[in-house]
Design a protein around this nucleic acid. Structure first.
Lengths: 189, 189
DNA sequence: GTGTATATTGAATTTGTATTCAGTGAACAG
DNA sequence: CTGTTCACTGAATACAAATTCAATATACAC
């Protein structure tokens, strides 16, 4: 293995270990020495790869933001299917592919007060709630989604998902819900 | 006003300012000097009233744990009404009485990894999810709650509520949902 | 009024952790 | 083989924030 690949691999190692710890212990509670320690490398080496703890965090949030491509809500029979579909995939992923869901959580958390400012601004640029509110309106017209303030409905849905996935990150033994249960927040009865 | 009352008042001032900041900025991000600064008192004085930041936090969590008396789920026509009722009251309170909901959030957050150990243990003693799972079972028998793993249903409900209330604490402009929307996670269709 | 207790301050002190740095050895190019 | 580059280390350094402390002001008891 050439030095280039070696280097890239190490960067990834650090990045994903940081992701895991940021999500399970929280950003502030994760010490640089924790990350280095778990990887069995020195603290100095970590700084050879990333100039700061914030830079490491920023890189992860950037992955989250760039990787988040919301389908436009068209191409579904009914708008409710957009939410049901998205959530089904997300919950499946949470079970099998930890890092995808970890990135999801990290990016959501990055919007909170107290998080590093640059990453926070970046994370704010994806506005799930605002975007989904439009899909909700569509759903109210096609009869698949209940009446009510579209933003409030969208917020209720996303905050619920956030709460569920986040709690599961802290406690992996907690059973995950069926996607349908949660989409029933939106579904017209 | 006597010295006794004076002292008690100051303790309360500090306590509730800490609560506000812990919830809006997060525990780690809230500096002792922030609390003192906002109250216009010196850092030293704060330590005259509370021996440490952790003690302050612990006292708040204790309030939350002691104040949390869950009705036993009896006295309702159907079990689903227990959840609907609780949530209705909670959402109403969130709007009008910030500190009640702040205590709710703080106590939930105190269970997470990275929080001060003593407070964490204390907060763990109230097991909403486990408790509510029993009420869910009742609801499945009386036909008001959908089929499925009671623990998973209970967890989905509480994590959703947590997510919604928490997000609202960070961003007060976010509209709150109707209680019914969220209880539809549980309601049999 | 005088003395004692307590509220209050702001300046040390301590502590925990991010960040820097001088040095070592292994890989690689020529 | 030799010089250069770069991954890597562990010990210093820098810093921010919690905690302590000596000193002062204010309230209260007698």
């Amino acid at each position: 293995m050439g030095r280039k690949e070696q280097k890239e691999e190490r960067r990834q190692q650090i990045l994903f270990k940081a992701l895991e710890l940021f999500v399970t212990k929280g950003y502030q509670e994760t010490k640089i020495s924790d990350i280095a320690g778990e990887l069995g490398i020195s603290v100095g080496l970590l700084f050879h790869y990333y100039e700061s703890k914030e830079a490491l965090h920023y890189e992860l949030v950037k992955m989250g933001v760039e990787g988040t491509k919301y389908p436009n809500g068209t191409g579904f029979e009914k708008a409710i299917d957009y939410f049901a579909g998205f959530l089904k995939v997300l919950l499946e992923t949470v079970k099998t592919n930890p890092w995808v869901s970890q990135i999801f959580i990290l990016t959501s958390q990055a919007r909170r007060p107290g998080m590093p400012e640059e990453a926070r601004k970046l994370a704010m640029t994806i506005d799930q709630i605002g975007f989904s509110a439009k899909v909700v309106e569509k759903g109210q017209k096609d009869g698949s989604i209940r009446e009510g303030d579209p933003v409030a409905l969208s917020a209720a849905f996303w905050c619920s998902v956030q709460g569920i996935v986040e709690q599961h990150a802290y406690d992996g033994t907690l059973p995950l819900p069926e996607a349908d249960w949660v989409t029933d927040i939106l579904r017209r009865r």
